[in-house]
């Protein structure tokens, strides 16, 4: 039997908002240590790697390892039916065909129950090598979201260049160019700080379309971490409260 409970459904609602535009379906791997998802978009340009630790749940039980194929669209519809303060419980039997979502509203004697059919999935799983990145940048997630939105108006790609001086985002198109530069802040660890750990300067271009999907995770946490090395995929990481993280990988654009 599998059972996972969160007293506030808000976090799970935000998680679904962060993946629903990128993924149509995904396998949720449930083990004693938590829930893991690794899934690529249909074009294999980006990948979502998500981890929700069992100790982050208010109640967690997983007697047997389960691989549950879920429609992200349906799961998102179900979670829209919960209010942010509702307690959410996910439950499945061993070898399940369905997963159950239950919402309890505090102080009310109302329980809503939704059952979702699982799907058989034949998903490609990728081995992601441990990488030491040339630049690791931490910056306010809202600032990052704003830059991605603003620059997307001027071109299809955003070029990210990182040096000791700071990080520069640029876009260029038929109508002109746009550049936003951020310097490292004096203090670190604050929600509005910008920190740069650099071994080597980098310059890479990425599709705005995907970066706009990633910034849907902004409500999850105040800081985003960008890991960059020349000619390898970008990692864009958001913490999911105290319970886990979501990492987006994005393949770079390369000169023809």
């Amino acid at each position: 039997m599998f059972e996972a409970r969160l007293t506030q459904s808000a976090i799970l609602k935000k998680v679904l908002d962060a993946i629903k535009d990128l993924l149509t379906e995904a396998t949720f791997e449930c083990t004693d240590s938590g829930i893991q998802v690794q899934a690529m978009d249909n074009a294999h340009v980006s990948l979502v790697s998500m981890n929700l630790r069992s100790d982050g749940f208010d109640k967690y039980r997983c007697d047997r390892n389960l691989s549950m194929g879920m429609s992200i669209a349906v799961m998102s519809k179900i979670l829209k039916c919960a209010t942010t303060n509702d307690t959410v419980t996910m439950r499945a039997v061993d070898n399940p065909d369905t997963i159950e979502f239950m919402f309890d509203t505090p102080g009310k004697d109302v329980q809503a129950q939704y059952e979702m059919k699982l799907i058989n999935m034949d998903q490609e799983h990728l081995g992601i090598p441990e990488t030491v990145y040339s630049c690791v940048v931490k910056m306010p997630s809202q600032e990052f979201a704003r830059i991605v939105r603003d620059l997307s108006q001027f071109g299809e790609n955003i070029t990210i260049a990182c040096t000791k001086e700071g990080i520069k985002f640029s876009a260029a198109g038929d109508t002109g160019t746009a550049n936003v530069k951020l310097a490292q802040t004096a203090d670190s660890g604050e929600s509005d700080s910008v920190t740069i750990e650099m071994q080597e300067s980098v310059k890479l271009s990425f599709s705005c379309r995907y970066l706009n999907f990633f910034i849907k995770a902004t409500p999850l946490c105040e800081q985003v971490q960008l890991s960059l090395s020349n000619d390898v995929p970008l990692v864009c990481e958001f913490n999911i409260g105290e319970i886990g993280h979501i990492k987006y990988y994005l393949a770079p654009k390369i000169e023809d």
């Binding site: 294999h44 980006s46 490609e124 081995g127």
Partner: peptide
């Protein structure tokens, strides 16, 4: 111009 790469050229299939 710029060509979009895919992740399968960077990561190995398990």
């Amino acid at each position: 111009g710029n060509k979009q790469t895919t992740l399968t050229s960077f990561f190995t299939k398990k």
